[in-house]
């Protein structure tokens, strides 16, 4: 969502759009952080967990491809459930056989999963699968409020609220629950964790299931117009920036996924808004992405553990 600088709305427009675009990065980044925290792995398939959820929810909501048409809420739930199922299958069929291989090889394995899911999505349904946003399903006014004439949409607000809620819930899960602590123990030392009676296999399943859950929720929230949801679009357009956001915020920090996501979203929108402060930057196509890349490199060189991260 690149907008030219509009003097009538001033800085509010990039601020609002950056905040909501950033929550999209944060939502995907949350799943990346979850898996890095628990498995020390960069999950390249996270974007397609979202893609699968969006597609399944769309197919059930519209009743296409011979599927029964179900109520909106059920379609959303089915979509998220499909993402969790795909994540669990990924763990069982791809990650577990490679558990003791180098992490970069595992990364290539998740690239394979992403490519596989993109292909399957495309073979099933290759047109735009734009999900109805929540306001349409409830038939209410799509605009929640206006900030200085910039409309704030319900569907955007839902992303931000859900991101905050998920980040907080996941943070508390790792802090307070026994399962969360067990996942962290396995991530630090799998052998020692096994010795005190933690099932490495079950914690791994749990971590991937949670990643599928956050990915699925991200998918059904993000796949609304004007974002044109086609197979592979999450991997192609959001995932890279979500990785950057997760690393900037701190790849081991769940609040960091939120902070990094919003920060990267803001940097991107301000850099591409062609503000008078930085003449010419907005006229480069992809100036926003360039600014994000510079921020990422700066963070990696100066503070590799990220803004809120506790370790690299």
């Amino acid at each position: 969502m690149t907008l030219a600088f509009d003097p009538t709305t001033g800085l509010v427009s990039p601020l609002v759009h950056g905040l909501f675009q950033g929550s999209a990065y944060g939502l995907l980044g949350l799943g990346l952080v979850l898996l890095y925290k628990s498995n020390r792995i960069f999950n390249f398939a996270q974007g397609e967990f979202a893609g699968v959820a969006a597609l399944v929810a769309y197919l059930f909501d519209t009743g296409s491809k011979g599927l029964p048409k179900v109520p909106y809420a059920v379609a959303i739930l089915l979509g998220v459930a499909a993402a969790v199922l795909v994540a669990l299958l990924t763990e069982r069929l791809v990650v577990r056989p490679m558990f003791h291989r180098p992490r970069v090889v595992l990364l290539v394995g998740t690239v394979g999963v992403a490519l596989f899911l993109i292909a399957v999505e495309g073979l099933v349904y290759q047109d735009i699968a734009a999900l109805r946003p929540i306001d349409q399903a409830l038939s209410i006014d799509p605009i929640f409020t206006r900030l200085d004439r910039v409309p704030v949409l319900w569907s955007d607000l839902a992303k931000l609220i859900m991101l905050l809620a998920l980040a907080a819930a996941a943070f508390l899960f790792f802090r307070l629950s026994r399962m969360g602590t067990a996942i962290l123990a396995v991530s630090q030392d799998a052998t020692a964790a096994r010795a005190v009676g933690i099932s490495v296999e079950r914690t791994s399943m749990l971590a991937w299931g949670l990643a599928g859950l956050t990915g699925g929720i991200a998918g059904v929230l993000l796949a609304v117009p004007p974002f044109s949801t086609t197979p592979g679009i999450f991997t192609g357009t959001i995932l890279t920036t979500a990785f950057a956001a997760a690393v900037v915020g701190g790849i081991t920090s769940l609040p960091g996924a939120f902070v990094g996501g919003v920060l990267v979203g803001l940097v991107q929108e301000f850099a591409s808004a062609d503000l008078p402060l930085v003449p010419g930057l907005g006229s480069i196509r992809g100036g926003g992405e360039l600014a994000v890349a510079i921020v990422l490199l700066g963070i990696l060189l100066v503070r590799p553990k990220g803004l809120l991260g506790s370790e690299t």
């Binding site: 890279t240 950057a244 480069i284 196509r285 992809g286 100036g287 992405e289 994000v292 990696l300």
Partner: peptide
């Protein structure tokens, strides 16, 4: 300065972002 997964990420960002510009 950066190795492993982080470098994979940097090459990814470099390829899709800097080159685009």
């Amino acid at each position: 300065r950066i190795t492993g997964l982080y470098l994979a990420l940097v090459t990814l960002v470099f390829g899709s972002v800097a080159a685009n510009a």
